[in-house]
Design a protein around this nucleic acid. Structure first.
Length: 274
DNA sequence: GGAGTTGTTCCGCC
DNA sequence: AGGCGGAACAACTC
């Protein structure tokens, strides 16, 4: 499940392979993943373009083309972007192939076909709702403690669900939300408005710390995730609660519980998350 | 073949 | 009006 640390790791691994390269051609095997154009139009839009830069915003990847258009990609649950030599066999679930001007290809692979690709002029990014509503980047200047306190206070929904709202802060998904709340010692079911100043401050710092740890470990390869060169991350070896139900909490020794919250699996320690 | 999986979006309610 | 919870949806694996 690519969340901010995974998408950041993919961006870093693709950057040296893609920037400066020209897209010689493009093949689409599953048309529904292209959200902005008919397939032929999409192909015409990328063919011949040179890749100038790659950035991440929330869980989105932005590939800047010299045509002033941006290739915007969201991997959702199981999407992968992989650099492959052109001779490599095309595996099942490969939906789009970008042929580069060397012997490499960029392949979009997605078992569940939830991932989405958009091609649009830079000034039209806001037309993609999920992109438009994104809140501040957790490592950006806008994401201050003051901003965070204001965004959370007087909200009645539980704090776990609020952390997953991309308009509060961009990039947190189910794994890191559980890890962040454990690190901060806060029960995921707590109404956001019930958190005091001290707890909000702990939570704020835990968001930054856990996401940073995820990036340093090059992502969490719990099931499908690999980076742009097919390498797994190692953050799954350092998780405190996610998918650790039945194990003992490393902080207090209590048994980790798995519940449902807002329709999502939620893992926490009943001993030290109050 | 039903349950489980998650990020996003929609809808109805208060 | 806007926040909220719940459901729908994407499609596959086991």
């Amino acid at each position: 499940m690519p969340e901010l640390p995974e998408v950041e790791t993919i961006k870093r691994s693709l950057h040296p392979k893609l920037v400066g390269r020209k897209i010689r051609d493009c093949e689409i095997f599953y048309e529904k993943c292209i959200k902005t154009h008919a397939p032929e139009k999409f192909i015409n839009g990328v063919r011949g373009a040179t890749i100038e830069n790659i950035e991440r915003r929330g869980k989105y990847l932005k590939i800047f083309l010299n045509t002033a258009e941006i290739l915007l990609i969201h991997l959702r649950m199981t999407g992968r972007l992989i650099i492959s030599p052109k001779g490599d066999p095309v595996t099942k679930h490969t939906h789009v192939i970008f042929h580069l001007d060397n012997d490499l290809q960029l392949r979009f692979i997605d078992i569940r076909k939830f991932g989405t690709l958009y091609l649009l002029p830079g000034e039209e990014l806001h037309k993609v709702r999920g992109y438009r509503i994104l809140g501040p980047e957790p490592f950006g200047e806008e994401f201050t403690l003051e901003y965070f306190k204001k965004a959370v206070k007087e909200r009645k929904k539980n704090i776990k669900t609020l952390l997953l709202d991309q308009d509060v802060v961009a990039g947190i998904g189910n794994i890191y939300a559980d890890e962040i709340l454990h690190a901060a010692g806060i029960n995921p079911a707590r109404p956001a408005e019930s958190l005091n100043g001290n707890e909000l401050e702990k939570l704020y710092h835990s968001i930054k710390r856990e996401l940073k740890k995820g990036i340093e470990n090059r992502g969490t390869s719990f099931s499908d995730y690999v980076d742009g060169e097919g390498r797994k991350g190692k953050n799954q070896d350092y998780l405190s609660v996610y998918h650790r139900q039945g194990c003992n909490c490393s902080r207090c020794g209590c048994e980790i519980i798995k519940t449902k919250l807002g329709g999502r699996s939620s893992h926490y320690c009943p001993g030290c998350q109050e």
